[in-house]
Amino acid sequence: MPMQIRPFQPEDTQGIVQLILPIQTEEFGIPITLEDQPDLLDIQNFYQQGQGNFWVAVQDGQVVGTISLLDIGNNQGALRKMFVHPDFRGKPFGTAQKLLEVLLSWAREKGMKEVLLGTTAKYLAAHRFYEKNGFVQMEAEDLPANFPRMQVDTRFYRISPDQYIL
């Protein structure tokens, strides 16, 4: 069965936690807990508000990827929680690419002028991925005041959904 990308449903919560936490803590060694991320247990109220949303990539009933768009006002969104299971990364699957396309298409439909994101210095493959997709690196001091900066984030990017070519 082909991979499905769809908006979050409450029954996805456990699969999302089981995907994201090991990537953060084991793969990248970031000392973060579920308690540090209350948004993961309240996705509907945190992400699915205003023009925001949260999507999952599902393969054979398993959550293998996530991405979210947090509406931060002013026709801007913050790309958050983009994670792909190691077994579903890269060209053969295109999981990250499909997730990003869904998010940017949504942002464009909703009239967002800009999507911003923060990431850590450790996510080198993510940096290449974002840059390949037209995101432009920016300085932290150029972030809008409404951007929800995470403590671990040290690199920041922006894109206009209108400029993204699907």
Rank of each mutant, 00 (worst) to 15 (best):
F93K: 05
N53L: 13
A96N: 00
V58P: 02
R89E: 12
K98Q: 12
W55V: 01
P144Y: 01
W106C: 02
L19M: 10
W106L: 09
F156Y: 15
S160Y: 01
Q18K: 13
K91D: 08
G52S: 09
F54G: 08
N146L: 05
L166Q: 12
V152D: 15
T13V: 01
T119D: 10
F83M: 09
D60R: 11
N74F: 15
D153S: 15
G52W: 00
R89D: 08
Q48K: 05
A121C: 08
S105D: 12
P7S: 02
V58G: 04
Q163D: 13
N53I: 00
L69T: 07
E101Y: 02
F147D: 10
A140R: 14
L117P: 08
I30V: 09
V115D: 14
P7W: 00
N75G: 04
D153G: 05
Q76W: 14
P161C: 13
P144H: 12
N45T: 03
Q24S: 04
F156W: 11
L40V: 00
R128G: 00
F147C: 05
Q9R: 09
R6E: 01
K122R: 14
A107L: 12
R6G: 01
F156Q: 05
A78C: 10
F54R: 03
E139Y: 06
Q97A: 09
G52C: 02
G65H: 12
G94L: 03
P7G: 03
I20Y: 05
G118E: 08
D71G: 09
E131T: 06
Q48E: 11
I20C: 05
H127Y: 03
Y164P: 06
Q18N: 15
F28I: 01
A78S: 14
T66V: 01
M82C: 01
E27W: 04
I23V: 10
G50K: 15
P22V: 08
D162E: 15
M1N: 05
V136D: 02
I16Q: 03
D42E: 08
G61C: 04
Q9G: 03
G77S: 10
P22S: 11
G94N: 07
V115N: 13
N75E: 13
A145W: 09
Q44Y: 11
L79G: 06
V58F: 07
A126W: 06
T66C: 12
G77C: 05
A125F: 06
L34I: 02
V64F: 12
I30W: 15
N146Q: 14
Y130C: 07
T95R: 10
G73K: 14
M3P: 02
R155E: 08
R149T: 03
S68N: 11
F93E: 05
Q4M: 10
M82W: 05
L70A: 11
R80L: 04
P10T: 05
Y123C: 09
I159A: 03
Q76L: 14
V64M: 07
T95W: 04
D36A: 05
P148M: 06
Q4Y: 06
D36Y: 08
D142W: 14
I32A: 05
S105R: 11
L79T: 00
G111P: 10
Y157D: 08
R6D: 00
N53D: 15
F88R: 09
E101Q: 07
E141C: 09
N75A: 14
D36I: 07
N133D: 00
A121K: 15
Q44A: 08
M138L: 12
G50M: 14
R149L: 07
A107F: 02
G77N: 13
